[in-house]
């Protein structure tokens, strides 16, 4: 009885090996590149030269594979730097591309197409005179890039 069962399995194997037909199938390939908008700076702290109309520039890398909006704002929405005593120095802030074209002339927002570039942000104090109090002035600027 056991011998008969073994022969049946062997016969099936021979049947497959002896076939000559071909088979095919198609598989579709899909992939998705997600929206990527990033901004990167080497140093989060910028030492500003406190001389009138002298611009301090720092690089920032911007990568975006979709149109995006860049927004720059200060903590108090004022173009000022203040020390602990409340003294203030006005400054201008801009963002420029490698060719010095202005991406953003001041605080606010601007739209831009896809990009993979190194831009600069620029800080230019003004209104400093001999009576502007000595000391350290600081301000916080928030830069946001967001896909449109």
């Amino acid at each position: 009885m056991k011998t008969n069962k073994t022969l049946w399995i062997a016969g099936a194997a021979l049947s497959v090996c002896g076939s000559s037909f071909a088979a095919s199938d198609t598989v579709g390939l899909t992939g998705t590149i997600a929206q990527v908008v990033t901004i990167d700076i080497a140093n989060s702290s910028t030492s500003v030269t406190m001389t009138n109309n002298t611009t301090t520039s720092e690089n920032m890398s911007v990568d975006a594979n979709v149109p995006f909006t860049i927004t720059v704002a200060t903590a108090d929405n004022e173009l000022t730097m203040a020390n602990g005593a409340g003294d203030e120095v006005t400054y201008a802030f801009s963002v420029k591309d490698a060719s010095s074209n202005e991406i953003l002339a001041s605080l606010g927002s601007a739209n831009h197409n896809e990009v993979d570039a190194t831009w600069t942000y620029n800080v230019t104090p003004s209104g400093i005179d001999g009576s502007t109090d000595a000391g350290t002035y600081t301000d916080t600027v928030t830069v946001t890039v967001a896909a449109q």
Binding site: I39, D40, S47, M60, T140, T142
Partner: peptide, 25 residues
């Protein structure tokens, strides 16, 4: 995963620091 980790926006904080030295004339 791609949608979860895609960076469609990013924010950085810049700290601006400047020093005015003492001066008299």
């Amino acid at each position: 995963l791609p949608r979860t980790y895609a960076a469609s926006s990013e924010t950085i904080i810049l700290q601006l620091i400047g020093t005015i030295s003492k001066s008299v004339s």
